[in-house]
């Protein structure tokens, strides 16, 4: 029998952390896929805070909101930020699809009876559903308000308010904010855990911060269609 010293440090084949996976695509380790999802998710989380802060100017009236839109249109940073957000979203979706498909194939035979120990939440169990709703909602949302029928940033307030007069748009928008709140409330703390930022004392705080921030953002956005539909 070989001693450990004779074998050297590690006889196992050097791990193929990067390389060509069995599906012919670049394969990253399971943890790196989750890290990609966490970083892109946190990036979009930060964007949502800024996006909400700007959109709440709707409540202040046309001058404030259109002024804000005109200000954004003037900054040369907008296009790079938009491209960055698109890349974040695509990378988030790509890693999510890869991770979720892997998860679905990891247990081919289901249990006849399965109970939870009470640690998972409705939010954590519905991440992929929320992601799917948002993947449909966000392109529609961008198409409607960015490329919608308006004449420059001076008229954006009118476009948004007219759109929210349509009950289908107002309630569709409002409905999509529920999966958003669920998605963010689990995703925030989960991202920190994935990035390795967790300690026993930090954990309940991260969970609480995720739930509070996630639902505050969702409720903030939820106010807008209701205000547009009922408020005028």
């Amino acid at each position: 029998m070989q001693s450990v010293a004779e074998r050297g440090t590690l006889t196992a084949p050097r791990p193929a952390v990067r390389g060509t996976g069995k599906h012919g695509v670049m394969a990253f380790s399971s943890i790196l896929k989750k890290v990609a999802m966490a970083l892109t998710g946190l990036g979009m989380f930060l964007f949502l805070i800024g996006h909400l802060a700007g959109n709440l100017l709707l409540l202040k009236g046309p001058d404030s909101f259109n002024g804000y839109a005109a200000f954004l249109a003037k900054i040369p940073l907008v296009v790079p930020v938009e491209i960055g957000l698109l890349l974040l979203a695509l990378l988030h979706i790509a890693s999510a699809v890869s991770v979720t498909l892997g998860n679905w194939t990891a247990r081919p035979q289901r249990y006849a009876v399965k109970r939870t120990a009470g640690s998972s939440t409705f939010a954590s169990r519905t991440m992929w559903i929320g992601g799917l709703v948002l993947a449909v909602f966000i392109p529609l949302h961008v198409w409607m308000f960015k490329y919608g029928d308006h004449h420059g940033p001076q008229e954006l307030y009118g476009l948004v308010m007219r759109s929210f007069q349509n009950p289908l748009i107002a309630f569709g928008y409002a409905f999509a904010m529920i999966p958003l709140g669920l998605h963010l409330s689990h995703g925030f703390a989960s991202a920190f855990q994935t990035l390795g930022i967790n300690r026993p004392r930090l954990r309940p705080r991260l969970r609480a911060a995720g739930a509070v921030l996630g639902w505050l953002i969702a409720l903030g956005f939820l106010v807008l269609p209701f205000w547009g539909f009922f408020g005028q």
Partner: peptide
């Protein structure tokens, strides 16, 4: 090398990913 090799062996075995739910704990 351990942190790379053990994760690679885990992935090769066909286990799923972590959803950070804490049911395992």
């Amino acid at each position: 090398r351990r942190a790379l090799a053990m994760v690679a062996a885990m992935d090769a075995a066909g286990f799923g990913h972590c959803s950070n739910e804490g049911e395992c704990e």
